[in-house]
């Protein structure tokens, strides 16, 4: 997992007029987004705002209602951590086995063994997230914070360019949530990884996300841009109250790239 800083700011994908929804019914106005290596995007919004639908559409897990999603680098290895409710508690897997599933790409599972390199990749990924001691423990019995660390190790083992995490901090206390978000910030910088994550903890995520996408289905609003800017949007403030951002300490001219409100 050597840092590859030559990829910094490499554009990964962009959406043009992407409309997400179900069975042809749009949930939100069109979304235009361009994501590059090393960025950490927070996707925020109330429950039912369409955040997970947006993620699933980005990842190709469900079709878009309209618009295009263009991959600007090929191949674009992606990794996804879905919501925690999707993992069966019955599954008898050690943390090591969970991380090993991250190694699989395409039909790699047809090879008889993951090999020495694969085992090293797993060990390194676990160590990177300080989960080495969890490797032989049953995944289903770990705390939520420990599970997320193992899942992030799985994500690292798959060596993605784009990491998408759906509410990784939903079941964590404030301290664990902050350290998990901080870890993602570190990984995004260290590995030139583009990270998109959904979080309801707007007070915590503001400290790690350089960009934010704010979705509100009720008012059909999509706001995106620098986190400091988005957090000052009137609708955002009405829903979440005023959240202190680093931008509060800076003069207004630092907000050169204004948040791009659509509708």
């Amino acid at each position: 997992m050597t840092p590859e800083h030559d990829h910094q700011h490499l554009p990964l994908f962009q959406t043009s007029g992407l409309v997400v929804g179900y069975r042809g019914h749009p949930l939100l106005p069109p979304i235009d987004l361009r994501v590059t290596c090393g960025q950490l995007w927070a996707v925020v919004g109330l429950n039912g705002a369409g955040k997970t639908t947006f993620f699933r559409t980005l990842l190709g897990l469900q079709p878009a209602v309209a618009g295009t999603l263009e991959r600007l680098t090929d191949p674009l290895p992606m990794a996804y951590i879905p919501q925690r409710t999707q993992f069966s508690p019955l599954m008898p897997m050690r943390s090591w086995d969970v991380v090993a599933t991250g190694l699989e790409r395409g039909t790699s599972f047809l090879r008889p063994s993951i090999g020495r390199a694969g085992r090293r990749q797993i060990a390194e990924a676990l160590e990177r997230v300080d989960a080495g001691e969890l490797s032989s423990q049953r995944f289903g019995l770990l705390s939520e914070g420990q599970k997320q660390r193992v899942l992030i190790a799985r994500l690292l083992a798959s060596r993605p360019r784009l990491a998408v995490l759906d509410e990784p901090t939903s079941a964590m206390d404030a301290t664990t949530a902050s350290s998990t978000l901080e870890l993602m910030r570190e990984l995004a910088s260290e590995q030139d990884l583009a990270v998109l994550l959904i979080s309801h903890q707007v007070n915590a995520v503001v400290h790690v996300a350089d960009h934010t996408l704010f979705l509100d289905r009720a008012t059909q609003t999509v706001v995106q841009g620098d986190t400091d800017q988005v957090y000052q949007h009137p609708l955002f403030n009405r829903l979440y109250g005023h959240v202190h951002t680093s931008g509060d300490d800076f003069p207004p001219h630092t907000h050169a790239h204004a948040a791009d409100e659509q509708r």
């Binding site: 996804y80 999707q86 069966s88 790409r105 395409g106």
Partner: peptide
């Protein structure tokens, strides 16, 4: 036996497996 790793990955997290390009 031949497909075990693929079956395990899909059974653990089918969405994650699809994103990683598994069939």
């Amino acid at each position: 036996a031949w497909l075990r790793r693929g079956l395990i990955a899909v059974s653990f997290d089918s969405d994650g497996a699809r994103v990683q390009g598994l069939p």
